[in-house]
């Protein structure tokens, strides 16, 4: 248990290190979600349009 807390404390610099990694992680996840949601939305639109003017093939 004390080992774990040692890791989290990081010689007293724990706050800076962990918050830096936290910011990094959160921003990357948000970016990832944004990109994937955009892709999904466009895929949906494209499928709808292709269905509407059928006969369209890539």
């Amino acid at each position: 248990m004390s080992e774990l807390s040692l890791i989290f404390e990081m010689n007293g610099y724990g706050f800076f290190i962990w918050s830096a990694y936290g910011v990094w992680f959160v921003l990357l996840i948000l970016l990832f979600l944004k990109v994937l949601l955009r892709k999904k939305e466009i895929k949906r639109k494209l499928e709808y349009l292709i269905e509407k003017n059928d006969g369209f093939e890539e």
Binding site: N11, Y13, F16, I17, Y21, W24
Partner: peptide, 11 residues
């Protein structure tokens, strides 16, 4: 810099 150098890997 001690432990804080670990921020380098992401920075």
């Amino acid at each position: 810099q001690g432990e804080t150098v670990r921020i380098m890997y992401i920075h």
